[in-house]
């Protein structure tokens, strides 16, 4: 994959340049536009491909559950997730291609296509919805951006969905670390400007040439959901290596179930 190589290579270079620029030169001298910032964030978050080991801790009002899984993704339109832990859920697999999602459950030996009406249901009991996993709303296309503020280490970028974008949010405010061009906090507001949820990205670590936040904390802010949280921790991420196309077919659901 020659092209893939060049692209990531260029990305890495750009990243280094950005890195240097932010640190070496005084800020005001190099004011970036919000669009540029978000483009960088987007490309930093979505590599060409990614293979990650994740653990997800879902804290409810009464109990805390931990899940482990492995995720394979190619761009932002294809991904495959395999549940590894807990034992009773081991082997459950998910496949996402574009806007559709399938699930395989070994216990019932069945592949189920998640219908449109279930898209906003919670994913595996977490504070993420099926839609959060499936959604292809790209930060680049679906939002207009505006730089709200520049604080020491961060840009504050406001993202307003365009009129056509199928996005439920009224606006999103993203804190972007100047060091890594990665998100630090993302605040999701509804149309009445009420905070609905808060994502916090921390513990940026290097994986090869790439820096990536390894802790994602989701804090729902709606009154009846206060106190819940979902924490995703990433270990062992490999970016931009080739992944067999066989992971992104419906047959993979059964094949890679174990």
């Amino acid at each position: 994959m020659f092209f893939g190589y060049t692209k990531s290579h260029v990305q890495a270079e750009l990243f280094c340049i950005a890195f240097l620029l932010t640190f070496v030169f005084p800020l005001s001298a190099f004011a970036e536009t919000a669009v540029e910032i978000i483009n960088k964030v987007q490309s930093n978050l979505n590599g060409k491909t990614a293979v990650m080991n994740l653990s997800m801790v879902v804290k409810g009002k009464r109990a805390t559950r931990t899940m482990k899984m492995k995720s394979y993704s190619c761009g932002d339109d294809k991904s495959f997730i395999q549940i590894l832990y807990p034992g009773k859920d081991r082997g459950i697999t998910f496949l996402k291609i574009d806007n559709s999602m399938w699930q395989y459950v070994p216990r019932i030996e069945k592949i189920i296509k998640i219908p449109a009406s279930m898209m906003l249901q919670s994913w595996m009991g977490s504070d993420f919805t099926n839609d959060d996993l499936v959604k292809t709303n790209s930060l680049t296309d679906d939002y207009t951006k505006q730089l709200l503020a520049e604080i020491d280490q961060e840009y504050q970028v406001e993202l307003l969905p365009t009129e056509e974008a199928a996005v439920v949010w009224g606006r999103i405010v993203m804190g972007v670390s100047k060091q890594f061009y990665l998100p630090t906090t993302v605040l999701y507001y509804d149309e009445d400007d009420t905070l609905i949820r808060k994502m916090i990205y921390t513990d940026v670590q290097p994986f090869g040439e790439k820096y990536y936040p390894t802790k994602w904390l989701m804090l729902p802010q709606e009154p009846e959901k206060i106190g819940k949280e979902t924490m995703v921790e990433i270990s062992n991420a490999v970016f931009d290596e080739d992944i067999s196309e066989s992971y992104f077919t419906k047959r993979a659901l059964k094949r890679y179930s174990n």
Binding site: D98, N99, S100, A116, M119, V134, P161, E164, A166
Partner: peptide
């Protein structure tokens, strides 16, 4: 959101 004639989920705002 709804499933379109090709079986894909499609959305509109």
């Amino acid at each position: 959101s709804a499933q379109d004639s090709h079986g894909e989920v499609s959305s509109v705002s």
